[in-house]
């Protein structure tokens, strides 16, 4: 007997005391919890996102659509970045005012090459105000998962208020489970040494989020 059959057989015998039951899944668990916590307008939701991002030490900026290129140019210059990773589908106008050398997101580039790049600029799929989270779904303007992982500086552009939702349940509704997702809440951190929160173990140690619009 294969281990598959063995384990499934054990499961069935273990459940012998459970009466047969055809309750549809939808009725199996009560969903009395809230879809979101508190009633907020769009602008308040964006403000809450900014507050919660900052709580976990992301650096938050806000700007209008037309100011985005100059803001990105300034942030990269302040960082003294020589190179910036660019997802293939990133809006070309965003980096129009920056003279930092662009590095394309390519399948061939290995991890060592990515490690030599200073910064990465991406869009996002959705942002969650209650938890201060940005979610990337590897869309064309976000690129492969590893480009937002290896460089030490990540700038993420969130379109507000369109891409901002209140809560985790509302975010999951918008996301496609078939895509690889990365949920980011503040820069990488650890509390493993005497429970002091220290930023930056492996992911980018500086996370900047621009709320545009």
């Amino acid at each position: 007997m294969s281990s598959r059959e063995l384990i499934l057989g054990r499961v069935r015998r273990a459940l012998a005391d459970v009466p047969p039951d055809d309750t549809p899944y939808e009725d199996a668990a009560p969903r009395g919890y809230l879809r979101e916590h508190g009633a907020r307008g769009a602008e308040e939701t964006v403000a809450l996102l900014a507050e919660h991002l900052a709580d976990y030490r992301a650096i938050v900026h806000r700007c209008g659509e037309s100011e985005l290129p100059s803001l990105l140019a300034r942030l990269l210059a302040e960082r003294e970045a020589a190179t910036v990773l660019v997802p293939t589908g990133l809006d070309e106008t965003w980096l129009a005012e920056s003279d930092v050398t662009r590095v394309a997101d390519r399948a061939e580039s290995d991890a060592h090459e990515l490690d030599a790049v200073d910064s990465v600029v991406t869009a996002c799929a959705v942002a969650v105000a209650e938890t201060g989270t940005i979610v990337l779904d590897a869309g064309p303007d976000q690129g492969r998962r590893r480009i937002t992982l290896v460089p030490d500086h990540h700038i993420c552009v969130v379109r507000a208020p369109d891409q901002v939702v209140s809560s985790v349940p509302l975010a999951l509704e918008r996301l496609d489970p078939g895509r690889p997702l990365t949920w980011i809440s503040g820069p990488s951190a650890t509390s493993d040494i005497e429970l002091d929160r220290v930023e930056g173990v492996h992911g980018p140690r500086t996370l900047e989020v621009i709320l545009v619009g």
Partner: peptide
């Protein structure tokens, strides 16, 4: 409120950037 990173993946499906 949320841990710094959560990753989800489904088999070996890629995002739009495709392979790699």
């Amino acid at each position: 409120r949320m841990n710094p990173y959560t990753s989800t993946w489904t088999g070996t499906r890629d995002g739009d950037a495709g392979e790699g």
